[in-house]
């Protein structure tokens, strides 16, 4: 006797609240960054120059493109083009994987130079540079976890599109996943200049 209840606006409202919590989650790390930057401006600049800007730039382009493809996927499902929706979701997931592979090579290079949290080499570089790399690894690491979660989410929703559970008049789930993906993208848009560019 249960009466079907559906509230798309409510679902989007809830998703925006959730995105807000994600912003606060990352803001803790941004506070640590701001305080450490104020304390060690010279060391932060020095440490920032050790990062490879090409990796960062490529990843920025990859993520921005993936945001475009997931936005296109929503337009596709609104027009009831299921096959196109699926293709665009898969492209988004592939781009997420490209991002992580890129990250893997970037981190491997840095770790092989002895730069990772708790290493002996870091202890020799002094407190300012240590603070920079600790925050760099933890913030980018947490962001990487979000890429994994977001990619998985889009995969699950894509499967539901294929099964016909997410359709042209019932696509809030895809929309919410896309919102999540845009947020993950947005966090990176802040991380990239803070760690690679401005110092």
């Amino acid at each position: 006797m249960s009466i079907e209840h559906r509230d798309d606006t409510g679902a989007r409202f809830g998703m925006w609240l959730f995105l807000y919590t994600e912003v606060i989650l990352f803001s803790g790390l941004f506070i640590l960054y701001a305080m450490a930057l104020a304390k060690y401006p010279q060391e932060f600049a020095e440490a920032s120059h050790k990062l490879n800007i090409y990796f960062g730039t490529i990843n920025t382009i990859v993520l921005l493109t993936s945001s475009l493809t997931i936005a296109l996927a929503i337009t596709a499902i609104q027009r009831n083009k299921i096959k196109q929706t699926l293709t665009l979701c898969i492209v988004t997931i592939v781009l997420a994987i490209v991002f992580l592979i890129n990250k893997y090579f970037e981190w491997s290079a840095e770790i092989s130079h002895g730069i990772y949290p708790g290493s002996n080499h870091m202890a020799e570089l002094g407190p300012g540079i240590t603070a920079f790399f600790n925050l760099y690894y933890f913030t980018a690491g947490l962001h990487g976890v979000h890429i994994l979660i977001g990619g998985t989410l889009i995969g699950v929703v894509a499967a539901m599109v294929a099964k016909g559970k997410v359709t042209s008049d019932r696509y809030t789930l895809l929309e919410n996943s896309a919102l999540y993906w845009h947020l993950v993208d947005l966090v990176w848009i802040f991380l990239f200049p803070l760690y690679y560019l401005i110092l």
């Binding site: 450490a36 304390k39 060391e43 949290p117 708790g118 002094g126 407190p127 240590t130 603070a131 600790n134």
Partner: peptide, 10 residues
């Protein structure tokens, strides 16, 4: 890592 350790920049 020393995130909250003053000797290591925390």
């Amino acid at each position: 890592a020393g995130l909250f350790d003053a000797a290591r920049g925390g």
